[in-house]
Amino acid sequence: MTLTSPLPAGLSVNAMSEPLVAQLIERSEELRVGITRTRAGTTIVDAGVDAAGSADAGMLIARICMGGLGHVARRMAFDAAPLWPVFIEVHTSNPVLACLGSQYAGWSLSATKEETGGKKFFSLGSGPARALACKEPLFDELGYRDKHERGALVMEVNRLPPQVVIDKVIDDCGLAPDKLVIAVTPTHSVAGTVQVVARVVEVALHKTHVLGVDLSEIVEASGSAPLPPPAPDDTQAMGRTNDAILYGGRVHLTVKSDAAARRLAAELPSSNARDYGKPFAEIFKSFNYDFYQIDAALFAPAEAWVSSLESGATYHGGKLDHALLHAQWHVTQETP
């Protein structure tokens, strides 16, 4: 057990994200997302498969992923020598519930080619509907289960989900078909790139969980990561979005105790991992595209600043890697 204080049972991540889901649908033309409905009434939001999608759609979907408990913004960097011109910034005052109880992509959803009538399907579901289904052991540790008549799920995949998967989500969540909304964001799409980079704080929370630090220690969490340029396919996009966090991600956590602050500053950064220093796409390929073979310590922000409420001290660990990001993102300095 890594959570000594229960999450607030009165907060429904699906209820809090509902106005954002409505906004995504109502502003579909402006946000360049496609809206379709299944025969049973389930709403599918296409944010990059056939529809163009947009960065604004990606930020709205990121907020939906966080169960309405996070702030997501885009900013320009005006430093003399910026790491990158555009960053995604994230903040939450309910970090454990927003990031692990909602945003974390932990629900495995798959179907065989026989079930789909075509080719097999696989996606990791993220967002507030996870807390309705509670199919992951993580929810037992968090001691949280949501109850709401509507739900929203996000799938980071390059095709729309088949009906067999939609039916599974409906059944596991205990929803009427017309009360479910699924947003699809391929990694290579603009919206997909944004919503993955907006996981910079979530990655820090997950690493904290992996380290075995009591999650109740974390009181506030903020983070930022560079928004990489678009990539021509999902594999390259996966490399770029992961590199953005592993080598350009920065988090600031506020925790209760000095001991937790010291430990997280030292152990949280990605530089603790065996394969640190290599582009993620190269690491992924070396393990035959199997996520579970990669050192779990790698999935973390590059830099951590951790402040202690107990002492008022702030501890710092890790570093950003300008050179690796610029090389991977093909930055060329033009001179007149």
Rank of each mutant, 00 (worst) to 15 (best):
T2M: 15
L3E: 05
T4H: 14
L11A: 08
A15K: 15
P19C: 00
L20T: 05
E26V: 13
S28D: 11
E29L: 09
E29S: 08
L31N: 05
R37N: 14
T38S: 11
G41V: 08
V45W: 05
V45K: 06
D46C: 11
D50M: 06
D50Y: 07
G53K: 15
A57I: 01
A62L: 00
I64C: 15
M66W: 01
G68P: 10
L69C: 06
G70I: 01
H71M: 14
V72E: 09
R74S: 05
R74P: 01
A80H: 04
P82D: 08
P82Y: 01
F87Q: 15
I88L: 06
S93H: 10
V96R: 13
L97A: 09
A98M: 09
G101T: 12
A111Y: 12
A111R: 13
E114D: 14
G117T: 02
F121C: 02
S123G: 05
L124E: 06
L124P: 08
G127M: 09
P128N: 06
P128T: 07
A133G: 12
A133R: 11
L138R: 13
F139K: 10
F139T: 15
D140Q: 15
L142P: 04
D146M: 03
H148S: 11
P161R: 02
V164P: 11
K168S: 06
K168P: 07
V169S: 02
I170G: 06
D171H: 13
D171Y: 12
D178A: 13
D178Q: 01
D178C: 08
P186Y: 02
V190N: 13
T193H: 08
T193E: 10
E202S: 03
L205V: 01
H209Y: 12
H209L: 09
H209E: 09
L215V: 06
I218Y: 07
S222R: 15
G223H: 02
P228D: 11
G239M: 00
R240H: 04
D243S: 09
R250N: 11
A266V: 00
A266G: 07
E267P: 03
A273K: 10
K278P: 03
P279T: 01
A281M: 00
E282H: 15
K285R: 05
F287S: 12
Y292V: 10
I294Q: 13
L298M: 13
A300W: 07
P301T: 05
A302Q: 10
S307R: 10
E310N: 11
G312P: 05
G317P: 04
G317A: 09
H322K: 15
H322G: 12
A323Y: 09
A327E: 05
